[in-house]
Amino acid sequence: MNITLKFLLLAIFSGVVHLDTMVFGQFMFSRPIVVGPIVGYFFNSPQTGLMIGVILELMYISVIPIGIKIPPDATAATILSVVFANIRECNDLGMPMSIFFGIIFSLVYKFTDIQIRTLNNMYLSWVDTAKAEFVEKRINLLVYYGIVVSFLRTILFYLIVLPIIYFIVKNVCVLIQYCPVKENFRDIIYILPAIGVGIGIAHFMEE
C-alpha cells in the first residue's frame, strides 16, 4: 500500500474518530489510549501505538473541557505521533520525536475547532427568524450540517498536515543519525510516562 493511499485512509478514519470528541456522543473512542493502538495496528506496530497512547493519555488526563475553554486535542496528537513514529528513517528515536511534533499540531487542531465554533454563530439568526412551520426542518439541517462540517474539517486538516510533518520529521530523523549522543536518548521513551503520572497524581490531589 503506497503512502498516499495510507494517508487518505488515515484521514477518513480520523474524520470518524474525531466526531466522538464533540459531535457524536462522547464514548471516549477518541482518547489516546484507544486511538494509539488502533492506528498502530494500521502500521503493523501496535506496541508502538500503545506506548504512545499511554504516554499521551497520562499527559492529557487532566485536560478537561471547562465551559468555553477548548482543550488541546488529544486525538490529533496521538494519531500524528503514531504515524510519524513509524517512519522508516527514524528507528528507535522515532517515538519521542514524533510525540514532540504531534503535540504541537494538536494545538493547530484546537485552532480549527475554535474557528468552526465561531462560524456556527452565523446560523442562529436563520432559525430565529424562521416561520414556525419551518423551524423543525431548519434545526434538522443545522444538526446534519454540524456533523458534515466537522467530518470534512478533520479530513482536510489531516490531508494537509500529514504530508507536511512527514517531510519535516523524515529530514529531522536523517539529521539525527549524524548526532554523536543519539544512543543516550534511546531510553527517553521509558521515562516519558513519568511526566503523565505526575500530572495525574497532581490532578487527583485535593488541597
Binding site: T118, N140, V143
Partner: peptide
C-alpha cells in the same frame, strides 16, 4: 441527545442540540 453538541456555538452553546433532542 447523542448529537447534543453537534452545532456547538459560542453564542448559545448547546441550544441547537437541545432543541433537536426535545423535538
Amino acid at each position: 441527545s447523542l448529537l447534543i453538541q453537534s452545532m456547538w456555538n459560542y453564542e448559545r452553546m448547546q441550544n441547537v442540540g437541545f432543541a433537536f433532542s426535545i423535538k
